[in-house]
Design a binder for these strands. Structure first.
Lengths: 347, 347
DNA sequence: TTGTAAGCGTTATCAT
DNA sequence: ATGATAACGCTTACAA
């Protein structure tokens, strides 16, 4: 096992001082052409790479972005990460990903961990539990210490940080409007309780769309589940009775899983999609794409979102501290991906 | 913005030396009860946390595991990560995840980056491109430098490291055997070219199962695609003609995506699953669970795999260096999850 | 019981 | 043109 090369070991080997080596490798004009080339050749030969940890300590800068997300399972988060990574790499930043599993304690733990020297800033989507508790001390703490934070997707109010959101309301509105235009008049929605921001906003979009067409909304056609991340038994049961007890001709769901399960219930009831009932879901993932019939979806453009979040964060990090602190909210537009679960519009 | 507390700042504030603070916080008996309590109280009040970077540099140990995987998109990798994280946390290790996107250069880059002080060891599944190139210099390099490596799922031979595999051959055999037992005699397989280890092994299992029952295998019933990670247009086309040109009564695929697309082709051809043709796929993910009909799958037990890989790695990391180096391969058993795409067996 | 100093691997400043 | 030294934040012999 050969030990990793350090400036020290190179210096010793070549019989010069550590600082000479350092300068030579950084192409300092202080060092003579000759020694410079000699040292660089040696370093290259033995594949010297500076120790990142030492650099971080020295520079008080890690060039690393910490990403904290509830669950990686979701295709959406995957695409966001891809965007973050791409943007980060282009700007010479690294990315550390931590999963909170929708668990408040884990979110806090991860942040504290990364905040202790491992990252320069954070990109996060807060966990469901955190939203319920409304305890944001961990966020405020890192911000107090000068680490910028960018929240995306699941954001909370009252924190001094930037935000990147998809236009949830508008996205839902697009989806529901599409169904109304195609003739649906009894559209149901499966969404989350209002404390989850994305659920609340998407419900709003659903209402807006109806409003625009002057269609009255039947409260019975709104199903609010408390767990929007998985499809557990209780959710299944509630979706089943919801579908069975409502004579719907359209259904909007805030995620793929609900749509897929609803499709199953609908099929069992002997109805067909989209002839008897249309379906549109939020999030464009693998499920909606591959189901039979495939499901029309509101695409969240996760990659773009990730890029945006990273670019905002990096900007803050590179900027001299003294500039006036201003926080903004950026919106990423959604787009409707028409598939087999909705009727074609005549335009 | 309050600057983060350091030993130095505490020392200054409390008018003692840095080492006194350090010792007090680490409960050294050298320090008097009184000062110790005083210092600890102060640290607690102002929420002192040691700087990880400094600790890493000092200890030449980061307590961090680097995980490098081709794509996080796959539900399987998600579960593996969960396992790694769980095991790591229990042993006081952190996890850094990097995606290679199946790209050789990115795999190399990520490893070099993390190897320069950020991690103590690696857990990785090598990218497709790396397998094709058969260029493993980056792996050998980090191992040379004394960083242990554990490969999982997609492994290559000839590298001095531990391996965690699922029993691919046996898993495929289980799936195919199940179909044979249920009466299928013309079973096709959609797999990968042999240079992807998992594809090769699963093809073997397919052959083994036939062998056991003395059924001859028709070469035409084996479709080897080169990209096993996505379902691109060329793959779709080849699957389509494969299904159409073979009169199959059973189909085994090495991933979910292929099974799902095949199901679509089968449905279009007017055949039904499982009455006309049974389907079993490798990997137990969201797709196979939610499709209609749901697809019988060989579950890979990713979480267990992740735990195992992490535990092996941590073990190596904690063990005194001088012990004899021995590398082993652990196998994770698969299990068959029966769903709607196969006929029930009478037992 | 407390403090001093060296060292982890770098870089930057200031000698020589 | 080259080298010594201090510093980043921490731990730990070793002195006092």
């Amino acid at each position: 096992m050969k030990r990793k090369l350090t400036l020290k070991s190179i210096a010793k080997e070549m019989d010069v001082s550590i600082s000479t080596v350092s300068k030579a490798l950084r192409d300092s004009p202080e060092i003579s052409e000759e020694t410079r080339e000699k040292i660089k050749a040696y370093a290259k030969l033995y594949n010297y790479k500076p120790n990142n940890i030492a650099l971080s300590l020295k520079n008080r800068k890690t060039n690393t972005i910490g990403v904290i997300i509830p669950q990686i399972v979701h295709h959406f988060f995957t695409t966001v990460i891809r965007g973050i990574e791409a943007e980060a790499r282009e700007n010479n930043y690294n990315v550390i990903i931590c999963l909170s599993n929708n668990d408040f304690d884990k979110e806090v733990l991860n942040m504290e961990l990364l905040a202790n020297g491992s990252t320069d800033g954070f990109i996060l989507s807060v966990s469901k539990e955190t939203m319920q508790k409304e305890d944001y001390h961990h966020l405020n703490e890192v911000i107090e210490q000068g680490m910028p934070v960018v929240m995306f997707d699941r954001v909370v109010e009252g924190i001094p940080c930037d935000r990147v959101l998809i236009n949830d309301t508008q996205g839902a509105k697009k989806g529901v409007t599409h169904m109304i235009r195609s003739g649906c008049r009894k559209i149901g929605i499966i969404t989350s309780e209002d404390y989850v921001s994305v659920g609340r906003l998407r419900t709003e979009g659903y209402l807006d769309a109806h409003d625009d067409f002057g269609i009255e909304v039947d409260e019975n056609r709104i199903l609010k589940l408390d767990n929007i991340d998985d499809l557990d038994e209780s959710a299944k049961k509630r979706i089943k009775t919801f579908i069975e007890n409502n004579d719907l001709d359209g259904l909007f769901t805030v995620n793929e899983l609900f749509a897929v399960y609803a499709a199953r219930v609908i099929a069992k009831a002997g109805k067909t999609v989209p002839d008897d009932i249309s379906i549109v879901c939020f999030t464009d993932g693998e499920l909606s794409e591959h189901m039979m019939p495939s499901i029309t979806a509101v695409s969240q453009h996760g990659e773009e979102m990730g890029r945006k979040a990273a670019s905002i964060l990096i900007n803050k990090l590179e900027r001299p501290e003294d500039e006036t602190e201003e926080y903004g909210t950026s919106y990423i537009e959604t787009s409707l991906i028409e598939r087999e679960s909705t009727r074609k519009l005549n335009r």
